[in-house]
Design a protein around this nucleic acid. Structure first.
Lengths: 347, 347
DNA sequence: AGTGCTAGCGTAATCGGTTGCGCATTAGGG
DNA sequence: CCCTAATGCGCAACCGATTACGCTAGCACT
């Protein structure tokens, strides 16, 4: 119950006054400048502690133009994949004494533009972003780059920007899943995809078609259903497939939620998984291991992606000015085989 | 590629120079000060656009001591509950033109202390936190309060601090779940709890025992299993219960993961859920709706909690100085009834 | 003694806005 | 026509830390 409204506002000047030196000496002492004697340094540290001094990063940031804050933009933070990537980024950033501002675009273009603006005004030292689904114009990102703010993209990236990007090999993941389904004896494999222009879905689709082709399985347009890939979409898409004369014997969904929707329909119709229809998703969301049967999926190595992204980002940050070319890093995803696709007895 | 290293650094002085006015006028014009004529305001806005001016919040923050940034500390951002709360907070904060710095303590006391320090140095306008599991000393939070930085706690709170807190009624949630189990005909109801000193588990335990007592069901110590409540713990706890002479006919786990572990064991043993043993969890993690059978759980209204927390926080922020008492807000959780406990036919 | 170094610290400008105060100019009122 | 009151904007201090530059004292060396 002491008076909480006390705001001491202790500055380096207060420390200086108390020690009969100047603020510049205090500043140097606090920054461990070699030109300051150890005696003085210790006195400063001691006085700082006594006065309960709290450095003001804002003043420092204004002076040297570095805020030591980096902005991270994700479509949404409450999806496991993104929050795990953020976790990876934070881990690296914190080690380097940087703080992270997390912003969500909610896949809304306007919000994304505003966010970039807010980050630039906040004078972040750089931006790490995963582009919103509906974003097709990248001027706001370019504006940031023109102002000298490093930009690194992950997962949802674009070739329209000259920025380093870290993605997983969606093509590879999809190809391997479909190949696996074929090995399990499936021959009519459906695919849930998204009409969005986001490259990840195009890549997964390409992996799907290539795996079919390489295994001499004809591509059937009827087996490809396009939607927003949420749970409800998965349900509808599955129902649509079940109305075909010749129903599929496997479904590879480009999202776990889509696969989950399909699973619900199949179970309601008492269709056996994987015996009658095998099911695979993409992302390895935590829930996939808890479904019945557990869902085969593609793990995106989210934490690793976060760490790698942060590393690349700081490389750019530290080599600002020197010839620093954009690079594209592709991580190989890992297929998690679970019962929803295991027709043959293992071992 | 054009030269990316150009950093124009346009300031209000540049705008002022171009219009033959002073920086103060530009500043006022940009802030829509009534003492500036519309003609001048429009000219300033136009020039600002032409010069591609980007306001520097750091300078403004230094001058008026408000950074318009609030710090949020959570144990971990990749758990659905916390990331949803953060989402709620962000929604409100962004509307009020505040940005949010998210920090994770990883339930590590040292990290928590450092984080508070970093946030104070970053001169955040306030802090919203959920306390780490291992934190038993709250000096760091008190330090923040003493410096006049508003503090609001949610979910993992403490009475040791004079701060507003937003929690859910764990007692109520647990009581209602157990009551529901009894209504479904269960008479030997087991409980998974945690030995941690976190109050939420104690409250859930209290709700459990009270519901039993109020329904004249004897409390049996053997039916209470204490663990860390993760998936593996749930499995072990369930196995332990199944070795009793008189096995339970229901399990109420204080966490969803614990319940999921139990479900796995029951399914492996071909024990029917809910007919032989009913199962309920706590938190309503997204996966609970995808299990088979879907798991009854207690929804913690995470997004609501985030919004309410933010509202309370901003109330404190805006009434800084005036007599502003700490309040404790208790949200009623919502029981989500699913098939894992529904023995009787509904309708 | 004179010269050159270096260690150790001070001076003052600077980062980019913000704002209390003050000064003109014009409008309005008597 | 004089006086008061707005209106519109400039002046300059200020927020707190950083840093280029410079000054002084002390020591070594010739």
């Amino acid at each position: 119950m002491t008076n909480m409204m006390s705001k001491p506002k202790v500055t380096i000047h207060d420390i200086a006054e108390r020690l009969n030196i100047t603020a510049s000496t205090v500043s140097r002492a606090l920054n461990d400048n070699p030109r300051i004697s150890d005696v003085t340094k210790k006195a400063v540290l001691k006085a700082a502690k006594q006065l309960n001094y709290q450095p003001n990063n804002i003043a420092a940031a204004l002076r040297n133009g570095k805020s030591h804050i980096i902005g991270v933009i994700v479509p949404t933070a409450d999806r496991t994949f993104f929050s795990s990537v953020v976790r990876g980024i934070e881990e690296i950033a914190n080690k380097l004494n940087y703080k992270v501002i997390i912003c969500q675009s909610y896949d809304d273009y306007e919000k994304e533009v505003q966010t970039i603006d807010a980050l630039l005004s906040a004078r972040v030292d750089g931006i790490i972003a995963s582009i919103g689904k509906n974003t097709e114009n990248f001027k706001h990102y370019k504006r940031a780059q023109e102002k000298g703010v490093p930009l690194v993209l992950f997962d949802r990236t674009t070739e329209a920007l000259d920025a380093s990007q870290i993605v997983i090999d969606d093509y590879f993941g999809a190809y391997k899943v479909v190949e696996h389904l074929i090995q399990q004896g499936c021959t009519r494999i459906a695919h849930f995809t998204s009409p969005k222009k986001v490259s990840v879905f195009k890549e997964r689709f390409r992996g799907y078609t290539d795996a079919l082709r390489d295994n001499n399985i004809p591509f059937d347009e009827q087996l490809v259903v396009s939607s927003n890939l949420q749970l409800e979409d998965g349900r509808k898409s599955m129902e649509q497939l079940l109305q075909l004369k010749d129903i599929p014997d496997a479904v590879f969904s480009a999202s776990d939620y889509g696969a989950m929707g399909a699973m619900q329909i199949l179970k309601e119709r008492k269709i056996k998984i994987p015996e009658e229809i095998a099911l695979a998703g993409f992302s390895n969301d935590p829930f996939t291991s808890f479904t019945d049967p557990p869902l085969t999926s593609v793990d995106q190595l989210s934490i690793t992606m976060g760490k790698v992204t942060a590393q690349i980002f700081f490389e750019h940050l530290n080599s600002a000015g020197s010839n620093n070319f954009s690079q594209k890093i592709v991580l190989k995803p890992e297929i998690i085989f679970r019962e929803s696709t295991l027709r043959k007895q293992e071992k």
